[in-house]
Simulated scan of single mutants.
Amino acid sequence: MVWRKFWRAVGDAPFFTPVARRVVTMDRWLSRATRGRVVALGMAPGLLLTTVGRRSGEPRQSPLQFVADGEAYVVVGSNWGGEKAPGWVHNLTAQPHATVTLGGRDIAVEAREASGEDRERLWQAFVDQWPGYRRYRETASHRTIRVFRLIPR
């Protein structure tokens, strides 16, 4: 718990995002190797999302932070506040059936995009968990960061 508090403070610092973007390759490797037991380098709750590539039809895995909302897993397409949404957002939009790997278990899910007040409530839950999301919203001000609820099916 102490480490999470430390990482939350570091994650909100201006230098964090440029450095963390370079480390994401290690996070991908670690999350796959541990079958979703260690994601987001252990800094926040994480899962491994497997989508179907909208063009390739091939499975695509993405380690993501999540917030629990009832039985659903909520994820956001922040892409570190980048210009474009991450590929998994487009994949989920094209094919909402996906798989979440969490704690070594595979869970079939269906994605539904949150909107309105529900989206804002879920967004605030992400900011509360990881204050750096506030910065992502500022740097991605030209686009709306999409929020998805992954519902077990």
Rank of each mutant, 00 (worst) to 15 (best):
Q65H: 07
S31Q: 04
A125P: 06
G42N: 09
K5E: 11
S78V: 04
P59Q: 02
P45I: 06
T139A: 03
S31L: 00
R105N: 15
L30I: 15
G53R: 05
T50K: 03
W29P: 04
A125D: 10
Q65I: 14
T93H: 02
M43A: 10
G82C: 06
A140T: 07
R149M: 05
A72M: 01
D12L: 02
L122D: 04
S31Y: 09
T139I: 11
A33T: 06
F16G: 06
T93K: 07
T17H: 01
T144R: 15
V127C: 08
R143K: 04
R54L: 07
G82D: 08
F66E: 09
P86D: 09
V10P: 08
D106P: 11
V127E: 08
I145G: 00
F16L: 09
R143V: 13
W29T: 01
R35Y: 10
W123G: 06
G11M: 01
H90W: 02
D27W: 11
A33L: 12
K84F: 13
R137Y: 12
R112C: 03
A114C: 07
E113I: 12
V19A: 12
V100T: 06
R8L: 06
R149E: 05
L102V: 15
P63N: 10
R35W: 13
S31F: 03
W7F: 13
G81F: 10
Q65D: 01
L102G: 07
L47C: 11
T51D: 03
D128A: 10
R135C: 05
Q124W: 02
T34C: 06
G116I: 12
R55P: 04
T144F: 05
S78A: 11
R143P: 04
L30Q: 04
A125E: 06
A114N: 01
V74I: 04
T99E: 06
V67K: 00
G103F: 02
Q129M: 15
A140R: 12
G87I: 08
V74M: 03
W80H: 14
L41R: 07
D118R: 15
T25K: 11
L49K: 05
S56K: 07
V52P: 08
V24N: 12
P86R: 05
L102W: 15
M1Y: 08
T51E: 06
M1V: 12
V24H: 15
G36P: 03
E138N: 12
A20Q: 14
G70L: 05
F6M: 11
E117R: 14
S62V: 06
L122N: 09
P96S: 00
N79T: 14
M1A: 12
M26L: 15
R32Q: 12
A33E: 02
T99W: 14
V24M: 14
V67T: 03
P152N: 13
R21I: 05
G42E: 00
W29N: 04
S141C: 03
